[in-house]
Amino acid sequence: MDGERTMGGARGEERRLTCVLCPAGCDLMVTAPEVTGGRCPKGRDYALKELTAPTRTLTTTVRVEGAKPDRLPVRTLGEIPKEAVRRGVRALDAVVVVAPVRLGQVIVDDLLGFGVPVVATRDLPATRDLPATPGRIARDG
């Protein structure tokens, strides 16, 4: 072994892919439109899309005012073209939201015109709304 990992090779028309939809990580053999090797039917759709128009979910953070720490994790609600992920992250660099934020709240309606919204993936209370005594122990009894 030369220490460098070889890319799962493309031999002639046959392509080998690893499905990334779940931790099983099935090895898929693709000779379009035939796909074999998947443990579930999702692998076929994934493989054909991966070879024609690959898409990914984008996750990153955006800046928040009025909360500490001041980053809010967000995701695309759906997938965008794989080649647009970097551009998407850069576009979200400019976004600033104001706390409080609720999980699922729409942060951007349509990222880069792909028709996919960006949503918050957690609740983030405004700093002033934080309970003054987090974790007070209840009275016994």
Binding site: L21, C22, P23, T57, T59, T60, T61, P73, R75, L103, T121, R122, D123
Partner: peptide, 25 residues
């Protein structure tokens, strides 16, 4: 989980690809 903002959590329990904070919630 709160700092694992990427998705892919919960595939077996929820049949969804949640982010870490979503899974925690």
């Amino acid at each position: 989980l709160q700092q694992c903002i990427h998705d892919g959590f919960g595939n077996f329990l929820f049949r969804e690809r949640l982010t870490g904070p979503e899974y925690a919630a």
